[in-house]
Every structure is written in C-alpha cells, then in structure tokens.
C-alpha cells in the first residue's frame, strides 16, 4: 500500500504528503525518539503522538515512509513546512495508536 492509498481512507487526514508514492510495508508505534530510530524499519509508517520539530529529523533519518499522528494530534506550521521541505509525509487520525495500527494492518 502507498501513503496515497492510505490517505484515501476517510479516517486518515493529510497534513502534508510530498512523497505520496512511498510504500508502507508495516508500522512502528512509539514516542521515544531514540527507540524509534533503533527499531523502526525502512518504509514503516511511524505512529506517534509526538509532534515537535525533532520528529521530522527522526522520520527523515530513519527513512520511514510516513508519520501518522494518532488521536488528532496537531502540528505547528513551522514543523509542517519543514516536513514539506524535507519530503516527509505526515498524516493524522482521530484513532488511537492501537486502532490505527490494526486498521493499517488490514489494509497492507
């Protein structure tokens, strides 16, 4: 499944999607940034409630295909602009991390 395909599901809202064709091959859930960098795999979707500027750097360096903000967490415009610049896809969802993960699992 691509990030674009996920975004077509009404439970997932696009905050920024500069790379819609990135593939989602699995998910990683976590809010501690070093854990994410240690464990998330290339092309995973990263589900988190963290939304500070460092999230963009971690997503970029870990090469995840998309960041998904659970529970309708919002982003500052500064963070959003940086994500756009760095080619990082960010979606949000009203779902909690667990529900989001099982929904995505059913779509992959």
């Amino acid at each position: 499944m691509t990030v674009y395909e996920l975004s077509q599901n009404s439970q997932f809202n696009v905050l920024t999607m500069p790379e819609p064709e990135r593939v989602i091959n699995g998910a990683y859930v976590g809010d501690l940034l070093s854990w994410v960098m240690g464990k998330a795999q290339y092309d995973n979707i990263w589900i988190t409630i963290m939304s500070n500027i460092n999230v963009v750097a971690v997503a970029s360096l870990s090469d995840v295909s998309c960041v998904l903000l659970a529970e309708d967490v919002t982003l500052d415009s500064e963070v959003l602009n940086t994500a756009k610049e760095k080619g990082i896809n960010i979606l949000s969802t009203p779902l909690a991390a667990y529900e989001a993960a099982i929904t995505i699992s059913g779509m992959i």
């Binding site: 501690l32 940034l33 070093s34 854990w35 960098m37 240690g38 963290m50 500070n52 460092n54 999230v55």
Partner: peptide
C-alpha cells in the same frame, strides 16, 4: 521532547 530514553549510545 522524546529524547533522553537512554538509547542514544546503544
């Protein structure tokens, strides 16, 4: 901010 989990050096 999500850092300081003691995973940096590892």
């Amino acid at each position: 901010l999500g850092f300081g989990a003691g995973m940096g050096l590892p």
